[in-house]
Each structure stands twice: as C-alpha cells, then as structure tokens.
Simulated scan of single mutants.
Amino acid sequence: MITDWTDAYANTPHIPDGAAFPARWAAEAAAFRARSDVVARLDLACGAAARLRADLFLPEGPSRGLVIFVHGGFWMQFGKDWWSHLAAGPLARGWAVAIPQYVLAPAARIGAITGQIAAALHRLAEEVAGPILLAGHSAGGQLVTRMVCRDVALPDRLRARIRHVLSISGLHDLRPLLRTDLNATLRLDPAEARAESPALAEPVPGTRLTTWVGTVERPEFIRQSALLANIWTGLGAETRVVEAPGRHHFDVVAPLADPDSPLCRALLSG
C-alpha cells in the first residue's frame, strides 16, 4: 500500500546522480543545434504567448512525415531547448521532427496545456506533409495520448494523419497526483484530474498506441504505462506495452537519438 504519494512519483532521489541530468540534456541539445549538418527552423510560433514556440528539424531530402516530441517535467519544468538531440534518430531515417513547448504550471492548468499542444499539432502539421507520429515523455506522454482522445477537438483531416502514439513513461491517470506535493503547483481538482486522464477517456477509432517504460522506474510509472494500454485495448485501440531493461525515468528516452535503437524503431514503425 502506498502511503507517501509524493515519493511514489519522485524520480530524482531514486536515480543515481539524478540531479545532474537536466544540465546534461541541455548541453546535448545545444550541441546538436550547433552542428553544421543540422537543418532547423527554430522558434516557430504556435500561439500568442511567448512560450508557445516549437523547433522544427528537417532531414536531408524529402521528409517521410513528421514526428512531434512533447517534453515532460510534470507540466512545470523544461522546454524545447532541453531535447533537440532526441531528433537525431528520426532525422537519420528521413523524418522531420518538431519539438514544441507549452506554458508551464502554475501559469497554465493541465487542461489549458492540452489545448496548447493541440494548437501546436495543428500549426506544425502545416509545415510537413505526410503521416504524423506523436511521442511524449512523462507529462508529455499524457499530452500526446490526449491528442487521440475523442473529447479533444482536432480536424478530421489532421486526426487521420496521426499513425502512431508513443507514450514514454507517461502519466495516464492523474488522480493519484491529487495526493502529491506536486499539486500545490498543478492546482488539479478532482474534475480536472478525471477530464485530463487519458485512461479515463475513449481513444478515437484506429488509434495505435505504444507505452514504453523502464524496468527500474518507480513502480507507479510502470503501472501507469500498463494501465493505459490495458484500458484502451478494451476500447478498440491497437496497443503494445514495452518495458525497457535497466532503464530509469531519466535515461529511458535517450535512445530516441539513435536511429537503430528499439525505441526509435518502435516509434517509426507507426
């Protein structure tokens, strides 16, 4: 039985040298953007607020389609500049990659952030033709899976382009967060926690979902990954659950940068 829900969702204290990861991500991302062979369109506007921007990385030659990666940070940390290097894997296989950011809590509630990502998806789809693959890490996993929920309004022509959703260590039932210290910033109430939980929503017809989580993550993240796939299977979605051996919450997403990694191949298989 869980008695300390804040600890159940805490990652940094349970990962060796966990506090060093954000600086490492930022350095790797900056180095990637500085490479002479990287073709990028930076800071594309995706809304009126200053933070509603995205970076778009383009492959050599015609693109096979668009990958959109949505970052995590419990909806209250980070932005697009921490994750640029993760575009390397899909780019090497001919896909364009967009990395949007959103207004962070407490300035925005999670319901509003869902709307911001939907608007970014609409905007970025205008830049690249072809199929769209969605990937998100942690809170980003919640946001990308929300994009294929029936109650999120997207134009039919845009929704038809979404071929696959990859939720990496995603948060799919937000109700446990009501019991954590995180909620002092998130300001979730029971109604919003239910409304923004993909596990409590119905996927649109034709949804293909992969949930991916590390075997040495906090048990709640492993449970949350299995939970969504289990429920959505019963609602007609094609689902797959993968537990990556030896990966924790901060390194489980790293293989996206490797075009030959199982994670990158799983995403692009959509």
Rank of each mutant, 00 (worst) to 15 (best):
R218C: 02
P203Q: 10
T239C: 10
L171D: 04
L177R: 00
H172M: 06
R247P: 04
E217T: 03
E238Q: 14
T207W: 00
A254R: 11
F221Y: 15
L188M: 01
P176N: 12
L209E: 01
R187D: 14
G234W: 09
E238L: 14
A201K: 02
P259E: 12
D189V: 07
A257I: 06
V253C: 09
E243T: 09
W232S: 04
L171C: 14
R223P: 02
T210G: 02
T207C: 15
E202W: 12
S167Q: 00
T180F: 09
G170A: 02
V241K: 00
V242T: 11
P255I: 03
P203S: 06
P255V: 00
V252W: 02
A195G: 09
E243M: 15
L186K: 06
L228E: 01
R179S: 13
A193D: 13
F221S: 03
R223F: 13
R247F: 13
E192V: 02
G246H: 05
G214A: 08
A226L: 14
D258P: 05
F250Y: 13
V213T: 06
L177C: 06
T239H: 02
R240G: 02
S167C: 10
L256M: 10
S197D: 08
R218W: 08
A199V: 11
A229Q: 01
P205K: 09
T215L: 07
T210N: 03
L178D: 09
P219Q: 08
T207N: 07
L227Q: 13
V242K: 06
T180E: 08
A184D: 14
T211K: 05
D173T: 06
E243D: 10
A201W: 01
H249D: 01
R194V: 14
A201E: 12
R218A: 13
E217C: 11
I231V: 15
H248Q: 13
S167R: 01
S167L: 01
L209K: 00
L256A: 10
E243P: 03
A229T: 07
N230A: 15
V252C: 11
L256V: 09
T211F: 07
S169C: 12
V213R: 03
H248W: 04
W232R: 04
P259F: 09
P255F: 03
P255G: 04
I231H: 12
L174W: 01
P259V: 10
L200I: 04
W232F: 13
R175Y: 08
L256Q: 07
H249S: 05
W212N: 01
R240C: 14
N183V: 09
R218E: 13
P245R: 07
V252Q: 06
E243V: 08
I231E: 14
A229R: 04
D258F: 12
V253W: 05
H249R: 04
D173A: 13
L171P: 03
F221W: 08
V216N: 03
R179H: 15
T185P: 00
L186G: 11
I222S: 08
A257F: 05
L188A: 04
S225K: 05
R194S: 15
P176Q: 08
P198T: 07
A201M: 07
G214C: 04
L188R: 01
E192C: 10
H172F: 11
A195R: 15
V216R: 13
A184C: 10
P245Y: 12
G206E: 00
N183F: 07
A193W: 01
T207M: 00
R247H: 11
A257Q: 15
V213A: 06
F250C: 00
L178R: 09
H249W: 02
A229N: 06
